[in-house]
Computed example of a mutant assay.
Amino acid sequence: MKKVLSLGLILILAMSLTLTGCGSKEVATEEAASKPIKIVAAHNQTSPENPYQIGMLKFKEVAESKSNGAFEVEVFAGSLGTSESELVEKLKLGAADVVVVSPGFMSQTGIEEIDLFALPYLFNNYEHWGKVVDGEVGKKMAKLIQEKSNNEFKVIGYWTAGVRHYYGNKPLTSMKDLEGMKIRTQTSGVVAKYWTQMGSIPTSVAWGELYQSLQQNIVDGAENAYPYFVQQNHHKTDNGKYITETGHDYTTRFLLANAKKFDAMTPEQQKTFLEAADAAVKAERDALYAQEEEYKNIAIKDGAEVNEIDRAPFIELAQPLQDEAAKEIGIEDLLKQVRDLK
């Protein structure tokens, strides 16, 4: 009888421990499920007024407010990586979940087709640009990026960094004025080839070092959009005070997410994530459009000189380079689509 009772007690104790263990596992699972998904969002600009920062903060606001606590977004402004190549690498490694990068740095990953958006004088105006990136061409490019990156990168929106203009130590009255000038721009690809054909010398300088390089005559000029170079006070240097509105690039920037992290989300979380991305796209673009005129006026007030130029010769030079690059990387059909939308 004692043996039977002892055996019964052992069985009861074992069942109790098993149930307790199951209960602990269930509690642990519930706790894990209730924890917010941490999203690291990063860009390479340091100014708190920069449109990138405004866009990322909007992403954070919408993702956190609409997800009922499912997302916790941390925004890094120029502190997770000061170069776009660093940000792309961190996205690949999972150290970042959402980043902003330009076509030039994305093409370094081996996805050459992205250079389509870096071609000089590709777009006539913002309306034309919007038709391209928000339409079929933008969808095709997004699909191509995800496939060619082996599902590492997912395009969740297209941002702009504004209309790029020349600024340097003298105004441009014609293309000949660029001969022999050291211009901070890309030093490879179609962009470098374009500036070289105009007679200038493309020179590599890190964005964070450009103010000092302009001051110390390391470069004679550069090219960028008003909100970017005026926020960095480039126009206050002797080699940046003359601005000629060449309008050679209506820039495209990719808002990228880590595709694998996105795929691991629930359908509801994915929906909220994309809604936050859409809100960020609108906020970034609106901020940029407003700031272009604002910072142009600031530059003039600070003593910079602005002039316009006949863009026809510049556009004429760019078109055969567009054709050549498109043929070389196999995007002639996409280039035709872009041109047909003008």
Rank of each mutant, 00 (worst) to 15 (best):
A142N: 11
K154R: 15
N150H: 11
T109W: 04
S149E: 07
G135T: 10
I114C: 09
I114Q: 03
L119T: 04
D134M: 15
E147W: 07
G138R: 02
G157W: 10
G130L: 05
E147M: 10
N150K: 13
W159F: 15
N125A: 12
K140L: 13
N125E: 14
A118Y: 00
P120I: 00
P120A: 03
G157Y: 04
P120R: 03
N125K: 07
G138E: 12
H128W: 10
I111H: 07
L122V: 14
L122K: 07
Q146I: 02
N150G: 06
N125H: 06
H128K: 05
V133W: 07
K154V: 08
W159G: 11
K154M: 13
I145S: 10
K148C: 07
Y121G: 00
G138C: 03
V132R: 01
M141Q: 11
A142I: 08
Q146H: 03
G110C: 06
D115V: 06
G138K: 15
K148D: 01
K143V: 06
G157Q: 08
N151F: 03
G130D: 02
F123H: 08
E112F: 02
W129H: 14
V155S: 10
E113F: 06
F153K: 10
K143R: 12
G110S: 06
N151K: 09
G135L: 10
I156W: 11
V132E: 00
I114D: 14
Y126V: 06
L119C: 00
F117P: 09
G130A: 03
K154F: 12
Y126C: 04
F117H: 05
E127W: 01
V132K: 01
K131L: 15
L116Q: 04
H128P: 13
E136S: 15
S149Q: 12
Y158L: 14
V155N: 11
I156N: 10
G138A: 02
S149R: 04
Y126D: 10
G157C: 11
I111D: 00
L122Q: 05
E127F: 04
M141S: 09
Y121R: 04
I145W: 01
L116D: 02
K139F: 03
K143N: 13
I111T: 05
A142Y: 12
D115I: 00
K143W: 06
K140G: 02
K154G: 10
D134T: 09
E147R: 13
E136P: 07
G138H: 08
V133T: 07
